[in-house]
Amino acid sequence: MAGGGDFAPTGGRAKKGKKRKPTKRLGIRIDMTPMVDIAFLLLTFFMLTTVFRAPQTMELNMPPSEVTVEIAESNLMTLRILDDGTMFWNIGIEIPERVEMKDLRKLLIERNKQNPKLVTLVKVDRKGKYYQMVDILDELQLANVGRFSLAPLTDVDKKEVAKAI
């Protein structure tokens, strides 16, 4: 860095005389190399360990369990997810139809445009995977559907779905 120079006097020492001559300043050189080395070491350490990305969250608002809301069947869209991940949708008492995850958003947007009062009910099987639910909630959010609810998948639902297969 600043060379290997340490204390390097630049001028001669002033002779002691009767008249005081202004003493010449010593140019002090401190070897900064070790300090800078440590600084770089710490810098690399902090750069490598820093994680900027804070985890993201999804906010869920669930109605308290004692509150019941009545909706007309024609306004109710049911999404059922079986344990193997297949997804079926229907409105009211229609026969369920199969839908793929990638087509879900389009379907949701379409249906909600047709009927703005539509409420989506998401039923995921107990044996299903958690990420399936998160995926659906994500799609609902991306489709700007705020009116949805979660419910357990019962045997009645499984019979419903069996009609489609």
Binding site: M58, V134, L137
Partner: peptide
């Protein structure tokens, strides 16, 4: 963790 497009930050 599962992936989602949500961008709400986790409270600290």
């Amino acid at each position: 963790l599962p992936d989602s497009n949500s961008v709400i930050k986790l409270p600290e």
